[in-house]
């Protein structure tokens, strides 16, 4: 059942990624070159909608959160390294699958590199576990937890700030 749910969810997400063109190298680099904010519009809108929906369901006791820990030594260098590689390859793990689906065969190089990168990480994991992964572990913290406010306050600020940012992007014609 879990496998079928994954497949169906993936098919729907793949349709959305392809029709919004956010799986294209040109769109991803367009955002990183500050020329085309299509992926920012797509991501930010999805985050705002899903934040409202998921926290609503959580308040009703229908879903659980799955927060990833904030480990300074891992998230910051890992995130920067991801970004450096992302700018070079032009696809992220999820969009590489969508890109391959619509015939963007250069995504195969990204996929092969990512498989090798995952293998190298598995080799390095025992060393990293006692070094970077052990540095600055702040635990599974959330913005409302850190700020000491209700989650709806944070969501409200995010929605207002997000809509403001998107309006500015539209005004700039990006």
């Amino acid at each position: 059942m879990e496998l079928i749910q994954g497949l169906v969810t993936g098919i729907l997400f793949g349709i959305l990624l392809q029709r919004a063109e956010v799986d294209r190298y040109d769109r991803q680099l367009g955002a990183l070159r500050l020329l085309d904010m299509t992926i920012v519009k797509f991501m930010l809108t999805s985050i705002l909608v899903a934040a409202v929906g998921v926290y609503l369901l959580k308040d009703l006791g229908l879903v659980k959160l799955a927060i990833k820990p904030m480990i300074l030594g891992a998230v910051i260098p890992g995130g920067l390294l991801f970004g450096l590689g992302w700018g070079l390859t032009g696809y992220c793990p999820g969009t590489s699958a969508a890109a391959l689906g619509e015939g963007r065969v250069d995504a195969i190089w990204a996929v092969l590199g990512m498989l090798v990168g995952a293998g190298l990480y598995a080799e390095a994991f025992p060393t990293l576990k006692t070094t970077l992964l052990a540095w600055g572990d702040l635990g599974k913290i959330t913005l409302p937890g850190v700020l000491g406010v209700n989650h709806w306050v944070v969501i409200g600020v995010l929605v207002v700030g997000g809509v403001g940012l998107l309006r500015w992007i539209e005004k700039k014609g990006l």
């Binding site: 985050i47 998921v54 990833k68 920067l80 032009g90 995952a118």
Partner: peptide
């Protein structure tokens, strides 16, 4: 680029989907 990106994503414990979408929507 793919090698760097995936090594980084695993170190960070997520990519633009896992951290960018799922983490952000949960206010992590």
């Amino acid at each position: 680029g793919g090698i760097l990106a995936m090594f980084g994503a695993r170190l960070a414990d997520g990519c633009p989907s896992g951290h960018g979408l799922s983490g952000s929507l949960q206010l992590a």
